[in-house]
Design a protein around this nucleic acid. Sequence first.
DNA 1: ACCTGTATTTTGGTCGGACCAAAACATAGT
DNA 2: ACTATGTTTTGGTCCGACCAAAATACAGGT
Lengths: 229, 229
Amino acid sequence: MRRASDDLVAEIEVRIASGQFENNKPLPAERDLMDMFGASRTVVREAISTLSNRGLVETKPRFRPVVKKPDYGTVLTATGKIIEHLLSEPGGVTDLYRSREFIERSLARHAALHANKDDIADLKAALEANFEAIDDTPRFFQTDMEFHGVLYKIVRNPIFPAIHEGYLSWLSPSWGKMNRAPDHNLINYQAHKKIYEAILARDPVLAENAMDEHLAVAWEVVKDTLEKK
Amino acid sequence: MRRASDDLVAEIEVRIASGQFENNKPLPAERDLMDMFGASRTVVREAISTLSNRGLVETKPRFRPVVKKPDYGTVLTATGKIIEHLLSEPGGVTDLYRSREFIERSLARHAALHANKDDIADLKAALEANFEAIDDTPRFFQTDMEFHGVLYKIVRNPIFPAIHEGYLSWLSPSWGKMNRAPDHNLINYQAHKKIYEAILARDPVLAENAMDEHLAVAWEVVKDTLEKK
DNA sequence: ACCTGTATTTTGGTCGGACCAAAACATAGT
DNA sequence: ACTATGTTTTGGTCCGACCAAAATACAGGT
């Protein structure tokens, strides 16, 4: 059996996909949707709630729901709450971090094999920005993320930057509060440099190992902060 | 401002986490929840709807919602609908398939480097089951998936089998209807064998390349079916 | 005409009650 | 003990109402 609201959800979805309900514009008022589809307000509201949780509309309480055509980022925000639960379980953060190690190790290898001139230039720029920020921990953190972000970009697949965003939003919340002294920054910078140089030298194994070591060291620093809670 | 239902969601979440609402058992009836939290039925239903979309309870129309402590599989079902939208966009399926290639290439490499005796035995068993099923296309399909599944298992991280499930549920729907003749099966089996042997020989590069070629060939066969629509 | 503060209307959030049909439960009959 | 039947519980839907905040219209001053 199917719920009336499910039908409504489907109908609104096609209108969003077809552009009849324009992207980034507010959805019609609930009472208008009632007329439009001949449904009760209960059903309309339930449908909007579902669409909101699906990420197709963005609802702020008391404001008109805004249509949002989904992208890979939408997936993250939609899963955020579930992931939070998983991370609070024992070993959850560790599993997530290990998966990140796996991915980024492979990314480093991939970059060493396939990065083009522009990629290398981006990487170099990110590395230099990273160096400039060694004495400015917040900014170092920023450039640190961006350096890794370049690697996610090199595969030229929009899924990967989204994954990067995911790791950041799920793993980094606690990092902000940590003491990341300049000497820690220096260590991380040197690790980045090693990775960059391995990629520049087109040495996939070296790049992979450099990344692996970098993340292992970083894990030792953050694991207590992260796995506590 | 916050909605009343959001508070209720939070309260129910803690009761699920604390086990007061037991896993795999039905949630209290809506009218009981009303009493329990002093909320109106509207709010209760809205909260249940949200929990359902979060994956913390499973609702079948007309049945009591069942409490489901989230696991990595939950994330998939929760994102399923959004992913569907993304896949219907031009290039969506291609991006997803390419990401799978990236992951499985790395998995093959990882297996060659780190598989233990048991892993090899599992892989061998999966390969043999695959061989047995060459003349039975549906069963071949099954054993095909399982062979790849072993690779996802070898990293010993619960996130990866979940990713595998995701790829299957998002990419395989159309495959079922395709004509996968026994000679196609044979080709795939031989590719699997090559991968297995590379892993057995502890040759990461060979394993990676074998996987890469396997998936590239498979893509040529399925891309038209998948990207159409 | 343009900006600004105020009155009016619209709209989302919440409530309570009601009805139906299906599910869950209880009961009687074999 | 098991099945068939009757009763109660419960989820899905609809309606009407009220409130407060947002959106809009309006009036007044510059």
